[in-house]
Nucleic acid binder design. Structure first.
Lengths: 205, 205, 205, 205
DNA sequence: AATGAATGAGTGTTCATTCAT
DNA sequence: AATGAATGAACACTCATTCAT
């Protein structure tokens, strides 16, 4: 519209959020590092080096380590939630879908969220923790939704879908136990066995 | 029982490694701290202060932090193993015994062993890790034995007792999630619900 | 006087160094900040933020922090000198004029010039220091002129007007000692008492 | 006394406060540096280097920079107070004693206390500031006592000894103005002239 | 004219470790 | 057996400064 006189803004144009390659690079690098080595196990210099920028650049984008951690972990949770959500609309049976979630999980290297959070909590503010918890809950709710859907379909019989979601996401934490997984015959077989265990329980028939 | 009679030895008792009150004090303090705050989250000074000795004294008894950690964690595992072993000889049904193990677990504050180990692993030598793994395995074997016994009694039907032991010890890690536990109605009810879930599985009847 | 007639020039006025609103804004903000928090106590980012521009803009107008400081402080000295000069032509008695200078001083928040300069001196070049000294001297000379005038009028009896000027400007530095000023009954009374003290001395009559 | 069985304390004997050469070395070095370059102008590394110890050693004795500053400045004030107290009992006339105080002051290199404190105040806690203020007040009170004594002796006629003490300690701050002092003929003459000025005032006779 | 991005050098602080006593 | 003193290496964070746009 000719009414909108577009005064050219002075100065270097700001990168949009979607188009900030450096920031994204740092974020992705940071998530991986934090998931692998924990909060204290990762230094800002490590993050910088692995992102091919300087330490000061990391601080240009993120106020401090706690903030970087919070944003990195939260955005990772959101990616997981979206993956899980997609499964909700899959046509396959629940058992197979659980297998897929478990398998994805066993492949990725990471440490226990809960422990990670507790380790970091000394350095985080209330708001940081809250933000992460919110993102984490979204994952659990996505999982809970899958279970609810299966209940309505008569696929499973269970009382407490929320506890189920937690238990399931926890049980899949048998990871990094490389020796055990190898002993059992690799990630595929382990995933299959875990889901089976979960599915039939251990009580007598 | 004549085993329990503590005959007081004459003369000044020799301070052996097993009979050193200061060393034990440090060890116990250290385990608690490591379990609560992780490896990096605990400084040698903290351990010293909480043990009412000086930092240098801690180094008098333990060569370095990695060694202290290894010994502290291993001896803690051994204590847990003994507790679990006692359950093996209990006359109660398996389900109740699982409930007891789960309940004990939910009460104690601690972080995920696996994560803890991974966090520390940067500082540990091969031998350290091996020593801890050995102690940890003893716990799992004790648990596995309970499951095996139950299989022989016909109490449960399951294929893979080792995986079962791991899965069980992992699932009980729904701890520190105070909010979830509260939301579900406290540790007793949560423990009961978890065991139920494990017992009957989630598949259709 | 025809000198004062400001003929408005035709056409778009050229932005000269003296007629740049952004630059002036930065300068004024900077003087205040430097006077309040000292040289190291003020960062270029603070100056930029308080001036509603970006850090880079500050560097567009001023080569570096030392230059900004020099220009900001010097121009502030020149403003003070002009105020002091006006007093020279006042019809009131010297004692009252001293009271006014002292009172103005006690009201404004600022730190010791000398200390400020010494703190900054590590970062300043010879020329910078020279420029500030020159501006500062002008203030002292203005004050010296007031004293000289009073001597000629027979208002005061004193040997060394320059030392007097320094001593006076120094003694008025009893500021920021809010507690003392409050204890003595506020800035007006303190100003009066200080001038009195200076006027009659402390020796026996 | 033979009743006091002196159990030899284990470990390296603690250095008493009077006999801790390293700590004292750091303190003295720090006072000088802070007085010369201000709070921000002195880094912990500078202090360490100038004290011939490592940075970590400085932290062994002083919790942080603010604490080091507080203790260094306070103990310096206490040394000054003791010097001033000695003058109280001197048999010489007040004018001569003032000359001595002024001369001592002009010789030593330092920056304005008030400004120094304000600069540091951003980093100091309430308690730190309070501690320094207390030490500073002791100096002023010692000075006030000298003036009171002189009043009782009929040596001087003045209304407000506390203001006088402040004004005097402030006026002696004409230091570091090396050029001025040189121009006037050296510290001795400057000190003499300042006291004269203070003594007779500037009003007409 | 004005700005977003990026950085090198430095600062305060912590911590595991050593050593003489 | 136990300790005070001392340190090197690392870490989180800041800041003055530069540069392409």
């Amino acid at each position: 519209m000719h009414n909108n006189i577009q005064k050219k803004k002075p100065g270097r144009p700001k990168m949009t959020n979607d188009n900030n390659v450096t920031r994204d690079q740092i974020l992705q690098t940071a998530s991986q590092l934090f998931m692998t080595y924990g909060y204290d196990g990762v230094s800002m210099e490590q993050v910088a080096d692995a992102s091919n920028v300087t330490k000061a650049s990391v601080y240009y984008y993120f106020k401090n380590k706690a903030t970087l951690f919070t944003i990195a972990v939260s955005s990772m949770f959101r990616r997981i939630k979206e993956q899980t959500d997609k499964l909700l609309h899959s046509s396959k049976g629940l058992k197979h879908r659980l297998y897929e979630v478990t398998f994805e999980h066993l492949k990725r290297p990471h440490i226990d969220f809960e422990t990670l959070l507790q380790e970091a909590s000394l350095s985080l503010t209330e708001e940081h923790t809250e933000e992460i918890r919110t993102a984490e809950n979204e994952v659990h709710q996505a999982l809970e939704n899958i279970f609810k859907q299966a209940m309505e379909n008569g696929e499973i019989v269970v009382k407490n879908p929320l506890l189920l979601a937690h238990a399931f996401s926890t049980v899949t934490m048998i990871r990094n136990k490389k020796e055990l997984i190898t002993e059992l015959g690799g990630p595929e077989i382990t995933a299959q066995a875990l889901v089976d265990l979960f599915w039939v329980g251990i009580g007598p028939r």
